[in-house]
Design a protein around this nucleic acid. Structure first.
Length: 642
DNA sequence: ATTAGGG
DNA sequence: CCCTAAT
């Protein structure tokens, strides 16, 4: 475990995982924070229970799980963090924390862990200017929230070899600091003084850079020597020391902003009361970093600085919201976004405004078991069909990562994660692996067992897959010009729109297609899976073609993204397909290229149903068969219409 | 709000 | 898939 981590190594292959010393939960993002992260897969059932996913989704996941075993990539271990929360939770009826143990144990090499941690930390530029003052004041707050856990925590995270003193020695931050002369141990101390937490990273260079970044509030610490004075990095080849990107200050807290849609809300019912609510959830790291999380205005103001590039969509929302009256109704909700079992500690605070890049987001701060959560009020601005894709902001250590969360399921997953953390469960694994253009991260949570929210299939594993794309391949991004976008906005949003490169399988696709009048519209595409088709067929057979809404309700309850119109369209296509190439009855579907190999059997069934429906609707022929719903072996190939 | 059809 | 007209 004495391995030195090279923080800057190559990018892709280097994604490792780690148990964050402070037990923070961090969703890492690729090197470039700008990269959109797309969460894929997820599923939740009704009643707020976190169900892995629909059959299909699960299937997809299974593959991941298996891969998991083979690849030694990464495994995140959030074990310790849980401890804290659990204490608070269990009393309130929450599941006991039996998690941590197994998790941390997962056969991850410590090296990996460390690397990841390094990676993660590296990834998250710390623009934060953490003055000792901050820490001092914060420590107080932290204490409040985590009191019960204090002890266990500090001692618990034995994983972090880096920990040294439990109290930062701020004196180390005074005057001129010459990081180059410090030993690793000293660097650790400085690190702690700077960031208020320990680190396990043993890479000197990394530590120095990290500290330098923290102290200078800059992200651009490319110097080779590190002498810091007055919050500025004194480079040898001093040229200015400030051409940094300034990705933002503030930090050390994880936040997730999500926009909920109806389904989500239903599932999380009592958790959020309004539908179409966007919320930003901030999960303060339970340890020292909690500071900002529970901070109030200070944090918000900081947010103004630290924020960057709101997602294009986000902007749209905002602008639309601004122009349109945003109904105060959504604001009315004062209910705490509660993962309800969370004890009485959760209380909502008054709403406040957080300005993001000039825009102001109305939010309210909820506190969940010591975590601070910013819940932005949202506006309801959905043109045509219900929002399927949602954007979310994932704020990690001051960085706001724009997430293009596609489909509420993903959001649910995200929430699930959030919730898991809140509830003290630990992430079983977090793995990154290169995939096509970007990276794919898989989070696996085991043994989710929360009172009031069991997985349907016993201890099904929850898997989360996050995808992100590296900055390269500009063509992959579609910059949309929006009428109301200011030039600035434009620039800021460039490259945020991610278009699935490899036409990735079941992944969500949001393609923008130019429309006649110069406008543009988004086009989602979700390949129909076999099971979906089957359900559809089944539904049609049961309720009859045309009763789409019924079918939707009854047979597609779990597939929230399929609308009745979708069903109808699909059915239409199925019919076309089934009648299109039957004659030869080669059995196999002479599917041209890379389409879906719809099993002949299904096609056949479709045909049968089609005929049945046809005849049923044509009372003309009184020749039996009408009521024959059992439909089994009707083989006549009657060129139906429809 | 749902359906059917066209694009 | 999206959009729209017709119910």
């Amino acid at each position: 475990m004495e391995k030195v981590v090279e923080a800057e190594g190559s990018d892709e292959g280097k994604f490792e995982e780690t148990g964050l010393e402070t037990s923070n939960f961090v969703l890492s993002s690729p090197k470039n924070v700008t990269d959109p992260v797309v969460y894929k897969l997820v599923r939740v059932d009704g009643n707020g229970r976190l169900v892995p996913a629909t059959d299909d989704e699960l299937m997809e996941v299974e593959g991941l799980l298996e891969n998991e075993k083979r690849e030694t990539h990464i495994v995140a271990d959030t074990g310790q963090a849980l401890g804290c929360i659990s204490n608070e939770v269990s009393p309130s009826g929450m599941p006991q924390l039996e998690s941590s143990e197994g998790l941390s144990q997962s056969e991850n090499t410590e090296v990996d862990t460390e690397k990841l941690s390094a990676y993660l930390e590296e990834t998250v530029p710390s623009g934060a200017k953490s003055s000792s003052d901050d820490h001092v004041t914060q420590s107080g707050r932290v204490g409040e929230c985590l009191k019960p856990l204090d002890g266990p925590l500090e001692g618990g995270s034995s994983t972090s070899t880096g920990c040294i003193s439990s109290k930062p020695d701020f004196s180390k931050l005074k005057g001129e600091i010459c990081l180059d002369n410090l030993s690793i141990k000293e660097l650790h101390e400085v690190f702690k003084a700077t960031f208020g937490r320990d680190t396990t990273v043993k890479d000197k260079l990394w530590l120095k850079r990290r500290i330098a970044m923290g102290l200078t509030n800059s992200c651009d610490v490319s110097a080779t020597t590190f002498v810091i004075k007055d919050n500025k990095l004194v480079k040898k080849d001093n040229e200015d020391g400030f051409n940094n990107v300034n990705l933002g200050a503030g930090k050390e807290h994880l936040a997730v902003a999500v926009e909920y849609n109806e389904d989500l809300l239903n599932n999380l019912s009592s958790q959020i009361d309004e539908h179409q609510t966007t919320s930003e959830v901030r999960l303060g790291n339970n340890v020292v970093e909690n500071n900002f999380a529970s901070e109030d205005l200070a944090a918000d103001q900081r947010a103004a600085k630290r924020v960057r590039k709101p997602t294009k969509r986000y902007i749209e929302e905002l602008s639309e919201a601004e122009s349109k009256e945003y109904s105060g109704r959504s604001i009315a909700s004062t209910k705490s976004i509660g993962f309800r079992p969370l004890s009485s500690k959760a209380h909502a605070r008054p709403a406040r405004n957080v300005s993001l890049k000039g825009r102001t987001v109305i939010t309210r701060l909820d506190s969940l078991g010591g975590f601070g959560i910013q819940v932005p009020y949202v506006y309801r601005i959905r043109r045509s069909r219900p929002r399927k894709n949602v954007t979310a902001l994932l704020i990690i250590n001051s960085e706001i990562l724009e997430l293009n969360i596609t489909c509420e399921l993903n959001v649910l997953l995200l929430l699930a994660l959030t919730r898991l953390l809140l509830e003290g469960c630990s992430l079983h694994a977090l793995k990154f692996h290169p995939s096509g253009m970007g990276m794919t991260a898989t989070f696996i949570k085991k043994g989710f067992d929360v009172h009031g929210s069991q997985m349907d299939n016993g201890s099904m594993n929850k898997v989360l897959e996050a995808k992100s794309t590296p900055e390269q391949a500009p063509e992959q991004f579609v910059a949309e010009s929006k009428k109301e976008m200011t030039p600035t906005d434009m620039g800021q949003n460039m490259g945020l729109k991610y278009v699935d490169p490899s036409g990735d399988t079941s992944d969500d696709n949001v393609v923008t297609v130019p429309t006649a009048k110069g406008g543009i519209r988004r086009k989602h595409h979700r390949a129909w899976t076999l099971s979906e088709v089957m359900k559809l067929v089944e539904g049609v057979s049961k309720y009859g073609a045309g009763r789409w809404s019924e079918i939707k309700r009854l047979a597609f309850a779990s597939y929230s993204y399929r609308t009745s119109v979708d069903l109808k369209d699909k059915w239409r296509n199925l019919l076309k397909a089934s009648f299109a190439q039957t004659p030869t009855d080669k059995g196999a579907n002479s599917r041209k290229h890379p389409s879906m190999p719809i099993p002949a059997s299904i096609l056949l069934r479709v045909r049968e149903l089609a005929e049945m429906q046809a005849q049923a609707s044509l009372p003309n022929l009184s020749t039996g068969k009408l009521s024959a719903c059992g439909g089994g072996s009707v083989n006549e190939t009657r060129p139906g219409y429809l």
